[in-house]
Design a protein around this nucleic acid. Structure first.
Length: 156
DNA sequence: GCCAACGTTGGC
DNA sequence: GCCAACGTTGGC
């Protein structure tokens, strides 16, 4: 059984269309610099699925589905001195940050906006909808996953 | 641009 | 270990 996740990206930095244009529609998910989010990355397995969410967007929305194609490995950008993701506390001997590889599976026919998701029965306790939630990598319950899939397939 | 809600840092 | 100051995220 796969596990389900949600990963956020600002489309001005990397959008789902950018992912669609990437080689093999695959990218490494670098730059996570939050311990809780990192721990979720480490918990991901090949074959897990994640919603691709556009934050800082108009509107903020779930826009697609990706599949984990490579499990967690060191985020080498943390070792590059002039890189924006550089972290002097991460060494090759003891990497502090990790990334996974994800491949685009589906672009939703219509984005599911945050506003739309709020108030949907069955999503009351979803992390994304929690007040003050900022986690850029978060788990999604199977029940929530299926509920959102159904929403994405209904038209209205 | 504003601001609430976090997370991190560092003095003590 | 506490907590104020600061930095960041992200909706609005």
């Amino acid at each position: 059984m796969p596990n389900y996740w949600l990963i956020k990206s600002e489309p001005s930095a990397f959008s789902i269309d950018d992912l669609a244009r990437s080689p093999d529609k695959t990218t490494c998910w670098e730059g996570v610099r939050n311990y809780q989010a990192r721990n979720f990355l480490q918990a991901m397995a090949v074959g897990d699925f994640a919603f691709f969410y556009h934050s800082q967007a108009d509107p903020p929305a779930i826009v697609g589905i990706v599949e984990v194609v490579k499990a967690a490995y060191p985020d080498h950008f943390a070792w590059e001195a002039r890189h924006k993701y550089f972290d002097e506390n991460s060494s090759k001997q003891n990497p502090r940050w990790v990334m996974v590889d994800v491949r685009l599976k589906t672009i939703l026919p219509a984005p599911l906006s945050l506003a739309r998701l709020r108030g949907v029965k069955g999503l009351e306790t979803m992390e994304l909808l929690r007040k003050g939630s900022r986690l850029s990598v978060q788990p999604v319950r199977e029940k929530e996953w299926k509920c959102i899939l159904r929403l994405s397939q209904s038209r209205d």
